[in-house]
Computed example of a mutant assay.
Amino acid sequence: MRDGRDLTPSRQIADSLRSDITSGRLPPGGRLPTVRDLADRFGVSRNTAAKAISVLKSEGLITARSGSGAYVRESHPIRRLGPDRYARHRWQATTVTAHATDRPDSETTQQQGGQQQEVSLVEADDLIAAVLGIDVGTLVYERARVMTRDGIPTHTMTSYYRREDVEGTPIVDPRPGIAGGGGGFAVLSERGLAPHEITEDLLARMPTAEEVLLLELPVGEPVVEVRRITRTADGKPIEYARGVHAGSRFVWSYTYPIPD
């Protein structure tokens, strides 16, 4: 195990600042010492002090404001996600419960949800075609949404549907807000395509440049991609969706019996 003597000066400064952040001595939103102040405190060059700041930026612990300096990254309320979020009684809900930390017993707050969407006809790629049981290149409806909580973007969700399943419904309405009075699942139910079963795959990765801008992500923050297939009770796939979630704002939580 390495001790501080094995670290470069910039790493030693970064470790010291990291300790201040994790201990709360530098609270969320707190301003870090300037590069000049760090150089004077640690007896190093400004270039070395700047490298220490860069280390913390790459870890996502701090953010830089042009002309103002570096600040400890603000913490965000964390939403816990599990199967219950798809419960029928939640389809009309526009508020969500978020936690102060990733602990389920932490203080909670209610956040107002919102969404913007773009709806278009696109050609089904290999995966969409396989999921929906159609030919590659068939036109399908794409409903691309950006979800917000109290006005802050938290994740995207892009859904794909067969044209005959959603043509003329609120699902293809591009106006802001949930589809119709109860969201997309309620609309599908009214069409005789009630959602019954969901398969989800989750994978963590670093965001694309577009996702960084769309979700206003700090440097170094990963995202969790969710791939969802929704089926009716008789097994018919009625939606394929891909979502991208800011890694620091969600916890996935599941309780289930252990299979034999």
Rank of each mutant, 00 (worst) to 15 (best):
S120H: 06
E118Q: 12
V172F: 09
Q111N: 06
V119H: 03
M147F: 15
V219D: 11
E107K: 14
F185V: 01
T97R: 01
D150N: 15
G113N: 12
D102N: 05
E118F: 05
V122D: 11
S120T: 05
R143A: 02
R145G: 04
L127R: 14
G114C: 08
I198Q: 11
D165W: 11
P153H: 05
I128T: 15
F185L: 08
R162Q: 10
L139Y: 08
R149Q: 12
G183Q: 06
A100Y: 01
E164R: 14
T158S: 11
G220I: 10
V219S: 13
T148D: 10
D150R: 09
V96T: 04
Q117A: 02
T169A: 09
G151K: 09
L127N: 09
V212H: 08
E142L: 08
P153D: 07
T138I: 04
R103V: 03
A144N: 08
G181Y: 10
P104K: 03
L202W: 15
Q116S: 08
L215Q: 13
G113W: 04
D126P: 00
P153T: 06
E167L: 09
I128D: 10
I134K: 10
I134V: 15
S120Y: 00
G113Q: 12
P207D: 02
D165S: 12
A194C: 06
R163K: 13
A209Y: 00
G133H: 08
G192E: 04
A98N: 01
T148H: 12
I134C: 11
Y161E: 13
P170V: 09
E210A: 15
G184L: 08
G113D: 13
R143F: 00
H99Y: 09
G137R: 15
E190Q: 14
P207N: 03
P195K: 10
V166Q: 04
G182W: 09
M147I: 15
T199Q: 13
P176V: 07
G137T: 14
T109Q: 12
P218V: 12
A130C: 03
V131D: 02
G151I: 14
L121H: 07
V122R: 12
D135M: 08
M147R: 15
P207I: 03
T154G: 15
P195S: 09
D102Y: 01
L214F: 00
A204W: 01
A204G: 05
R191T: 09
T158W: 06
R149P: 00
V219Q: 13
T156G: 14
R143Y: 00
G220K: 08
T148M: 07
L203S: 12
E190G: 14
G184D: 13
T101Q: 02
I134A: 08
V219C: 03
A130V: 03
L214P: 00
A186L: 05
H196K: 12
T169S: 15
D165P: 07
A204D: 12
Y160L: 03
I171K: 05
G113F: 08
L214R: 14
G168H: 06
G192H: 07
T108N: 06
A124M: 05
T101R: 01
I171H: 08
S159M: 13
I198K: 10
S189Q: 04
R175I: 06
P153A: 05
H99D: 01
A98H: 02
I178F: 10
V146L: 07
F185Y: 14
D102G: 00
I178V: 15
V136E: 15
A100G: 00
E216G: 11
I198A: 11
P104T: 06
P153V: 11
E197R: 14
A98E: 05
Y161Q: 10
L121G: 07
L217Q: 11
